[in-house]
Amino acid sequence: MTTAEFVKNLAERLEITQVEARRLLRVWHETIVKDLESGKTVVMRGFGSCGTRKQAARLSFNPALRKRMKLPPKLVMFFRPSQRLKDNLAAGSSP
């Protein structure tokens, strides 16, 4: 499903214009990202939770340079689906 399809369906269900639906969707994920930026974990009950975790600095090998590289630490986003979502998906027909 693409964004256009998503927005079209959303507008139909909520009985609003597609422009407004797109705006609301944008505001929704913008709010989530803002919270993640400040280090918070966002919980959407019945759907899942997402947050950030720190990936420690590590040594790796760059095959192009043929050199060992020290990669700096990094903040990575994670998404953990809720049990309910998992159950729903398992019960329904899988793609």
Partner: peptide, 15 residues
């Protein structure tokens, strides 16, 4: 955006 805190760090070659 999430990784802004560590964005200034670059990978270094280790001898």
């Amino acid at each position: 955006r999430i990784n802004r805190r560590y964005a200034h760090l670059k990978a270094e070659i280790v001898e």
